[in-house]
Design a binder for these strands. Sequence first.
DNA 1: CAAGATTGAGGAATCAATCTTT
DNA 2: AAAGATTGATTCCTCAATCTTG
Lengths: 155, 155
Amino acid sequence: MPINIDETPLLSYRVYRLFHDIYIYLEGGDHCVLREFNLTNSQYRILALLDEVEGLHLMTLSDRMFCARSTVTRLVDQMEAAQLVWREVDSTDRRAQRVRLTAAGADLRKRAQQAHESSLERRFDTLDSSEKEILYEMLKKIRDGLVTDYEARNA
Amino acid sequence: MPINIDETPLLSYRVYRLFHDIYIYLEGGDHCVLREFNLTNSQYRILALLDEVEGLHLMTLSDRMFCARSTVTRLVDQMEAAQLVWREVDSTDRRAQRVRLTAAGADLRKRAQQAHESSLERRFDTLDSSEKEILYEMLKKIRDGLVTDYEARNA
DNA sequence: CAAGATTGAGGAATCAATCTTT
DNA sequence: AAAGATTGATTCCTCAATCTTG
């Protein structure tokens, strides 16, 4: 009895597939929006995470982006070359550097952020706001479960 | 007034972030499970999609995986070298090839699939099955909305 | 010319190794 | 030795160009 896994009745698997597809479409949509600002999705994510006043350590960025340290180093290299950010040696720990927004970076961030957020509003308008609230709570529960599982595995 | 985008009150944005994080954790978890079978996440996805009897065209695989044609070509190259699949020239259209499971591929798929599905059950056990049903319906609505938006943009 | 598949070149992310500072 | 960051080598994926068949 041949089985194609996509026809599995397993609910968890069907949910999993939807998460996957939604992610792909979200990334693709982001890509279209951010291309107008000459930003890759990852570069935008850095801009979005940065604190305007204090900046952020590269370590912190890689933690929040769930990516390797070296990835952040290279992203910051690019963005420094584009004069969107600059590296400031941390005054209290000379091993560390803070990634700081330049004026141009802060300006670009504001504009890209507006475009991105309005695009999200449009893309999510299939749900009304009470549905979105319910969804938000369920997603939080799922994410927390996944985090717990992840940490249990690495212990 | 400095604003860190992660503190935005915009509900759509917070939902978006959760989708992103959930995807990252799901991929990471899959990676751990599939490593035991010497499969990358993408290779597993190919195995999972293949029809046991008819196989599938490379075109169809790239459509269902939302990835470039050349990506599938290379994945199939690897998996053919590992003797998990083989290419069969389509009898009715000699441009096309069907990717077919070998006996070893079918066996590996069955084992990997079992491990993957039970891992998913575990990772999603924060929701009971009625919650999962509700979630599934909302996710379908969102995915369909994203697809519609995507197709409107490319028209 | 269009469709299915492949190839070469380039970008993006990762791991492991390294350097500096704590 | 451990933490923050960087570099080199490698893998994975994509785009553009190409080849073959319809």
